[in-house]
Every structure is written in C-alpha cells, then in structure tokens.
Design a protein around this nucleic acid. Structure first.
Lengths: 248, 248
DNA sequence: TAGTGGTCTAGACCACTAG
DNA sequence: TAGTGGTCTAGACCACTAT
C-alpha cells in the first residue's frame, strides 16, 4: 500500500533538489493516482501536506511550487526621527518608499475601548482602563501586509489628529511629540504563530503561512509608555533586524 | 450537505469562547459524524483544519484543545558580558537557569565546511570559503528547543576549544575573546516560516507550529564579523525582545 | 474489549479554467 | 469540452489506549 507520505516525500525531494523550481507545475491529481496507484483522496492528502508546509500552492486550478516572496527587512532605522519629524511621512510609507514600493493604509476603527491585557500591562494601567485605539490594515503593493492596532492613553490623544483618519505629516509619532513629550525608546517583542481564520482571510494568507506577532511599546524620555501597537504580519513578507552592543 | 468548514467553524468558536478550555476533550470522530450526519472523512478534515491552525492536537489517541506553552522571552541581556566572561556559563544555560529551567545541548557536528550563502554574506567572505561549523541541538527541559549552527572563520578557531565538543566556561564567546579580539556588537535577524519535515521531526513540533529563523551575527569592536549563527526555534516556545532608543 | 484516531479505497458531483 | 482541484460518502482495516 502506497501511503500519502511516500508521495509527499517524493515531491518534497524533487522540490528541494530544484528539479521543480519556483512556479513549476506539479503532476496533476489524476497523474498521481495513476503513477502511484492510489485513490484520489490519498493523492490529495499528499498535496495538502506540502501545502501546509508552505511548499506548494494552488494557482488558477493548478498545483505549483510556491514562489517565496522576498521578505522586506524591517530595521530599527525605520523609526529614525529625521524621517518622521517636521513634515516627514508616516513610518510605513517612508520605509517602503525607500525600498521602491508603495504602501497605503486603511483605517478599520477609531474608538475608545477598554485596554486588553497585553496593552494594559505595557501601558502600566489596570486592565479595562479606557484607551484610544486606532486599528488599521496596511498594504504593500496590493497585498495586505499587516493588521496594526495602536493603543494610546486617552489623555495623550485628546484633541490631537491621532483621533482622526488622517494623522497628518509624520503620523502618530509626530503628533505625540506635539503634545509636548519627547519620544525616547521603543521596545519590540516578536513571536510567531499560525493565523486565526479571520487573520488568514484579512491578510489573504496562503495555507502554510504563519504570522508574526509584533508588540511595539513606545516610551517617552521619562520612561512613560505612550503607545502600544499590536501588529500581525504575514511572515513570508517580513524580516526584522536589530543591532546592538553587547551589554555589560 | 454539511461541509467540514461548518464543523471546524463551530468547534473553533467553542474553543475561542472558552467553552472548551486548554486540554479539553473534543467530541470524538464518531460523535461528530453522528451529530452532523457526515462521513468520517469529513469530520476528520474538520479536525485536521483546526490542527493546522495550531488550535487542537492529538494526545494519547484523543483530540484535545492545544495548551499554549508560555513562550520564553529572549531579551538582549542574555548576551551580557558579565554572564559569560571569566568562568561564566554558556549563554543558553545561563539564560534558562535564570528562568528556573534546565537546558542542555547536544553537538550534532563539528566540521570544516564551505560557507553557505547567508553565512558567507555576513562573514564577508566569498561563498564556498571554508569555515568552521558547530551544529548543535539545544533542549529546554526535555523538549528540543532549537537547532543552532554557529559558523566561524577558520583562523579564529584554530587551536581553540571552539573546535571541541565542550567549549569550556563561558562558551564560544569567551573563547573568541581569548584569541585577543573583543566582541562589540550583535545583529539579529528574525523571520518565521513553516518547518521542513526534518525540522518538524528534530524539534518534535506538533502540526500547526511554525519555526522562527534567527540569524545572529557577532562583530568584534573593529566591526569584523566573527561568528554567524543560524538557528531554528519552535515558535511556540520563544519570544524575542529588543529595546532601543529612537535613532536620529 | 470497546473506543479512538489514522489512513485508504472507489466512486461521485461540483465549480472553475484553458483551449 | 476536457481537465483540474475541492469536497463528500460509505465502508474498511489498522494500531493504540483505557478499562
């Protein structure tokens, strides 16, 4: 009896060896059933296995070797003050423009909400404290790139354009500094997991694509947390880079 | 006709609402086939879907809600010189010990090999230049935690204990500094993807668990790259944290 | 021993796409 | 229109686990 694992192992080897390059057409289901003498379901299972590994995908009704998009690199210089202070652009726009890409964002929600636990913890307020949230979906090219929700203490955004759809030149960072504070440090926490079904839909993720959870906390120079951003990104589009001196 | 999606949507909702908590037993296959009036394969497909989303798993022949392990936090202080210089411990051991866990590592290979592309690029040598590699599997508790391959320029490891199984107190960092250089900065690059089948086996990853790719480049104080580590970690066990001032 | 999940078969109908 | 993948059914055998 031929098992689906033998079939997926065979195909995987062919792909890894380069015999089937990116976008190469795989043998069709009926071809596989004939070649291995298995039922249709068994061949399907083999292909689904590789799909879940992120190795293949269906495109217009055919199985092809998945082309890996070059991930964009997110370095900490994307936060450089010179890029967003004054009449600079929002961070994402400036970052992608330097990489020859166009980006845009769509606001999903602007509202007062009780702080969820990870936010409350980092803003150093009790869970449930009312905060301002700005939920947006960002796009790089045509593909949705991240779901980013920024949370702010209410008193900081009162009367600012952070509460508006368009935050104006320099984006949220510039507006925060207009309230009189000065941004000091950023902490980023990164982890990865499989997307929820909602996220998979919203980010149009192919099967076998994880997401990166990014939690960004922005502090002013006194050490007060002034913004927490919870972002979910398609893992195949992003790399994060950090460079730092060896601590004492 | 009831589709597998309706079943997986129902179950997902029950799990997300907390109705089925961590480790809760899911309805059995035969229960699902009865309840929804579907064939066994259809019910199976529903469960497999949730498994791939990382929501459920099989344990001793039963489907249960997947308990999420608390990920360990990797902050940059794990590289603090005070922890590994002198007679300190290796970085991983020191880091986990502070979190109340035991860690160990197994050497998989010590060899001279041609530098693969990502390594050559970062060590600033031509692809194929012979370098020293130290491949190891690390364990936290009993579970394999990462596959880590450290690459060194040959001239730096000649005659050092980096070529031995046991690198001695302070590990590789301490040995590097004994050659007369002084470590300056570290760059870490992070991305996520689904594991290869080999990695899934080596790390005993449940289905629906991505891996984190970590590329760490260590520089001496003159800016020369002296080590490149390629590591693959189970994503459900790790969070990475960085804190840095906003660049100018 | 009874029940569980894992896997396979053989056949079927569907929607979609390319020629 | 022919071929492709997506999904479903009904039945089967297997290994493993708990009682």
């Amino acid at each position: 009896m031929v098992s689906y694992r033998q079939i997926s192992d065979d195909l995987r080897a062919l792909i890894e060896s380069g015999e089937y390059g990116p976008r190469a057409l795989l043998p069709s289901l009926s071809e596989l059933t004939k070649r291995y003498g298995v039922a249709r379901n068994t061949a399907t299972q083999a292909l689904k296995t590789l799909e879940q590994e992120g190795m293949i995908q269906v495109e217009s009704g055919r199985w092809i070797v998945r082309p890996r998009p070059r991930p964009r690199r997110h370095g900490i210089d994307r936060y450089s003050r010179s890029r967003w202070s004054g009449d600079g652009q929002a961070i994402l726009i400036a970052e992608t423009a330097r990489q020859g890409l166009t980006a845009r964002q769509e606001i999903r929600e602007l509202a007062e909400v009780p702080a969820p636990e990870p936010v409350a913890e980092r803003l150093d307020v009790p869970v449930g404290t009312v905060v301002w949230v700005r939920r947006r979906t960002t796009f790089v090219g045509e593909r949705p790139h991240q779901l980013a929700d920024s949370y702010y203490p209410l008193d900081l955004v009162k009367g600012t354009r952070i509460r508006k759809e368009n935050t104006g030149p320099g984006g949220g960072f510039a507006r925060l500094e207009e309230t009189g504070l000065r941004l000091g440090e950023i902490e980023e926490e990164i982890s990865a997991r499989m997307p929820t079904s909602r996220e998979a839909t919203a980010l149009t993720l192919p099967a076998g694509t994880p997401v990166v959870d990014l939690v960004r906390t922005t502090y002013d120079t006194t050490g007060r947390p002034v913004e927490v951003m919870l972002a979910v990104l398609a893992a195949d589009m992003s790399t994060f880079a950090y460079r730092f001196p060896i601590p004492d």
